[in-house]
Nucleic acid binder design. Structure first.
Lengths: 337, 337
DNA sequence: ATCGGAAATTAGAGCGCTCTAATTTTTCGC
DNA sequence: GCGAAAAATTAGAGCGCTCTAATTTCCGAT
């Protein structure tokens, strides 16, 4: 298992160690003749640079770590695409860590990446304390995606969740609904803002008496149980706004289990517009978050900092948009009973 | 951004560099007194071990890299859970790389992990050439998950896809279907075996004349288009066996778009039993692959090799099982027209 | 030929840690 | 209280690479 080293390549090529290093780093000012000599020797020996040594010596890793709150949530997984595309262009490699939906799991991944001395870390949907993230920013460039932040030191990219939630409620009200319940995301990223947007919009429409929130956790089963709770109430809601697509899907399951129809008996609106929501079979009305853009922007912020182009923090907020599909419909007379 | 080093911790604690190293490695034979001195100094300085330096010096990384063919495919993402659980127990950290559904994307991630000198690499659903994997095994421990292999050097863990496909076909035949089409997984991992199982089972049931395969690629849109193809045939199938859940979901969408009902007009069976299939709204009949076990076994094989407990390759095959849900039903008279 | 500056190459000192061997301190039986 | 063995600590040589500074080679101009 022992690997050839630069030293061996140098000997075989009959040049100095330093020259091999220059060739490997694609440095200019190396004659074509020797460059070829080195490349041939490397090829012959099956030489592969040791990034541990390289990074140690150069104090750069050319790597961006991404900590996903939950690898099973398509929303987070889809952010990866934008991150990867932007990183590829900039010549950075991407390593992914799974936070297993727990603050400690996320913090452990951050710690792992810090120990690896990655050049930057993007956290997607982080639930760990902001203080953990700020502490990490002493050692590397941190960007928070999908969670609002007004930190003085950390950059963030996210959609305006308060507005997003309002869009959902406004639309349901427009369809005639009044008993609109919310399945929230508990302590999940963005959950607080969406809860707030829901309440504000309800209040603005004079429906503050109808505000009902059931506790979810951004998972399908969480949505299922929250829906149970809502259905057991004396006056069940005619519409449910769920804090994300996964819990909306769970709620949908529960409602169908109860023998009710969606959207005829209950309308459902989700959040994120993941591939799941777009599946025609589900066809979930939802609030779009431009995931690709979120990912790209996050990488951009890290690159800016790495190039010392900026030192003060930036908080980029993208406007969300409602995507109307088939789980929502106009309230009919029969429903209000 | 410069970080404290062991040297600084040693100075502050008034001990040698070597002693700090011993403490950080939780070595025995360090007095409680000095251990505490070191820990206090480290804490005070905010010291964090540099794994690059550590790994370089120790020639071990305590890290397992996982290359996923596609991070968006829930099947692969779900394998991560088992991998992570087993790795945690063994004290290994897990880093994830996304192959972006392309052989070259996968190969790049393998290369990245090799450059990081990870102790082992698990590839899930790999589509890159076996030769690439075998080449990598010269440098680290490789395990292939979800793809059959009879390599003399690489360990593999997967379910018996031929049998799995037969289960699906047998069941559909049992329900009275004869025109059973297959949406395959193209060049995807396991696709070939499932295609073969399908053909064999059809032939065994005397239905070789009914064999129809539409080209898919393990994605939802692939399934959608393949279903289009099948529906346009003169005699459309009464049942479709898709090579994975994602393409089954796509096929379902297409069938419903065509105004047909599932399972009344067309039965559908998927493969993998991902969380997607389990969603009650979809409730897809499918073939279960025990993902958690696949992941755990893969880690176990790497550990065995790392401990030099075994040198010859092992190919572990798990029996799949049919999970009956709501997308499949008995053929009714009307359907065969 | 000869010289100067640009281009190409190399020497050598780290990067922050591990690990073996050597050294120092502690412990304990008598 | 002494000596030997055990326990604790340390010195120092790498791990495989980068990077600055120094050296050597190359070339065209004179």
């Amino acid at each position: 298992m022992s690997q050839p080293t630069m030293q061996q390549v140098a000997e075989r090529a009959g040049v100095s160690l330093a020259l091999v290093s220059l060739v490997m780093r694609q440095a200019p000012n190396v004659s074509d003749y020797r460059r070829q000599l080195v490349l041939d020797a490397a090829e012959h020996l099956g030489y592969r640079p040791n990034v541990l040594a390289r990074n140690l010596a150069s104090r750069r890793t050319n790597t961006i770590g991404v900590v996903l709150n939950d690898i099973h949530n398509p929303f987070f997984a889809e952010i990866i695409d934008g991150i990867q595309a932007a990183s590829d262009e900039a010549g950075y490699r991407v390593l992914i860590g799974n936070g297993k939906r727990s603050p400690s799991g996320e913090a452990e991944m951050v710690e792992t990446f810090l120990q690896f001395r990655v050049d930057g870390i993007i956290t997607a949907g982080a639930t760990m304390p902001m203080s953990t993230i700020e502490a990490a920013s002493e050692s590397t460039k941190m960007v928070v995606v999908g969670r609002s932040s007004r930190s003085q030191v950390i950059d963030s990219v996210n959609t305006d969740d308060v507005t997003g939630a309002r869009l959902a409620v406004d639309y349901l009200v427009e369809l005639g609904h009044r008993r609109i319940a919310h399945i929230d995301g508990g302590t999940g990223a963005g959950a607080e803002a969406r809860r707030r947007g829901y309440s504000q919009a309800m209040t603005d429409h004079g429906l503050s008496a109808e505000i009902v929130t059931a506790g979810g956790d951004f998972t399908e089963s969480g949505g299922y149980h929250a829906a149970s709770e809502l259905l057991n109430q004396s006056s069940r809601p005619t519409a449910i706004f769920a804090a994300n697509d996964l819990s909306a899907a769970g709620a949908l399951d529960r409602i169908e289990d109860a023998g009710l129809a969606v959207p005829d008996d209950v309308s459902i609106v989700g959040y994120d517009n993941t591939a799941l929501a777009a599946m025609q079979h589900l066809s979930l009305t939802t609030v779009n978050q431009p995931r690709d853009e979120l990912g790209r922007l996050a990488v951009g912020f890290i690159l800016e900092r790495l190039r010392d182009e900026r030192t003060d923090s930036v908080h980029h907020m993208i406007a969300p948009a409602l995507v109307k599909r088939k789980t929502s419909s106009r309230l009919t007379a029969g429903e209000s009973t």
